[in-house]
Design a binder for these strands. Structure first.
Lengths: 231, 231
DNA sequence: TGCTGAAATTCATCCGATGACTTGGAGGCT
DNA sequence: AGCCTCCAAGTCATCGGATGAATTTCAGCA
């Protein structure tokens, strides 16, 4: 194994075994490099890799720290990974969302407080009569984020959030506006919200399923029409 | 933004825009560094980070290549990330598995061929009368892997696979053997297999749910008993 | 043809030096 | 005392160059 990979493993080891706790500061690069028996350059490669996936947080002029290591932070890196995928696999991601989101929505319907629901509805109301694509994306993202958060499971929450990279969501919404399916989608958001407000998990689950399946079907048609060369 | 991060973005951009395709070879480090306007050292940090998440594949003496970028390859990196989590969040991961696995199992029940099922059953039969923990873990992993694969969705498959890091699965099985709950768990595997063989998605889904929920409940009790300091 | 070994290519690792950024404290002002 | 300014120390960021290690390529030979 390459020396840099060993360094990655060793740092990981230090964290997993508890030698390093979340928030802890690492020794300075020069010291840590010496301790691990490699050059500062090679160590930096290891640190850079670990900081890309948010395990380490490097602050110039200050030091290098272990992040909180919360699922949300780590799964966050997943969005980065997902951005690499183009249309051909987008459908598969959407299929997974169709599994996760209804579950999350049902859980949210059982757990969210009256106050949470009020905020959720306020979010939907905030959208003007003719919103831009950017506003739609932001609103959509926030809506699903809050529901996932309301499900009370951090892992589920970040997974749902990460699963539709911002890039993909943007592309979908751009497509929807062109096809004037925006109104239907927004109406579905309201239905989901209503079901959660009524505390009806199964109804909420059904609306969420319908919602995702709708987008899925639309995307499937678009991909078929434009044939193979969507790229 | 740091120059290295810019390099990461630029390489990502090249891939996403299609300037670089899966399998393509990158220019040699020296050239690429010059082209992107940074030193070889800094470029290497970027490359190292991208290769940790399996976006790039570096081969000494040969060159640096873009990987296949298949979901399985990229989500693979998730297992690495998940290894950082300890008992406190394991339950949340398990809860997500309880959502995904039943769905995958139901899909598998509808899609797997007679031949696939035969192999699945053969796998279960391969386990001797008193298997070691290592054998149990390997068998368990392979069992769930095949079902997820049988669901016909790469993303779902790698997600299910990745969600229970090998480390965690091992710990769970070690615990199960101590509590002699092994037989019940193995019996559940057989029930799941039977339901898939019978082509009954809903029965398969139910057994999968029961299976995961069982592990979940056991783990919940263990965590409660041993109090806070499981770490 | 098929094998061997040397040369070319490319990544791996190291070293040393300089620049940039953050933090904390010394010193002075109000 | 409280506050601000500014400087010095600490730490990461980036660079250029040099040498080693692994792989591939291909000429030369049996």
């Amino acid at each position: 194994m390459a020396i840099t990979d060993e360094a990655i493993e060793k740092i990981k080891e230090m964290i997993v075994t508890g030698a390093l706790h979340p928030g802890d500061r690492l020794p300075r690069e020069a010291d840590l490099a010496e301790r691990l028996g490699l050059s500062r350059n090679s160590l930096r490669e290891a640190v850079k890799a670990l900081s890309l996936i948010h395990v380490l947080d490097v602050r110039q002029g200050d030091g290098t720290y272990v992040t909180s290591l919360e699922p949300s932070v780590l799964l966050d890196a997943m969005a980065f990974v997902i951005d690499f995928h183009r249309d051909d696999t987008v459908l598969e991601f959407l299929e997974v969302r169709r599994i996760l989101e209804p579950a999350a929505t049902a859980m949210a319907a059982a757990r969210m407080t009256r106050d949470d629901v009020a905020q959720l509805r306020a979010l939907l109301d905030k959208l003007g009569p003719s919103p831009s694509v950017e506003e739609l994306v932001a609103n959509d993202l926030e809506f699903h984020r809050r529901i996932a958060f309301g499900a009370g499971n951090q892992v589920l929450c970040s997974l749902v959030e990460g699963l539709s990279g911002p890039t993909q969501r943007a592309r979908i919404w751009r497509g929807l506006t062109q096809e004037s399916a925006v109104q239907r989608t927004l109406a579905e958001h309201r239905s989901i919200c209503d079901a959660i407000a009524a505390g009806q998990p199964e109804v909420a689950r059904a609306w969420a399923t319908v919602h995702i399946a709708g987008v899925e079907q639309w995307l499937r048609e678009v991909l078929t029409e434009t044939s193979v060369s969507v790229d």
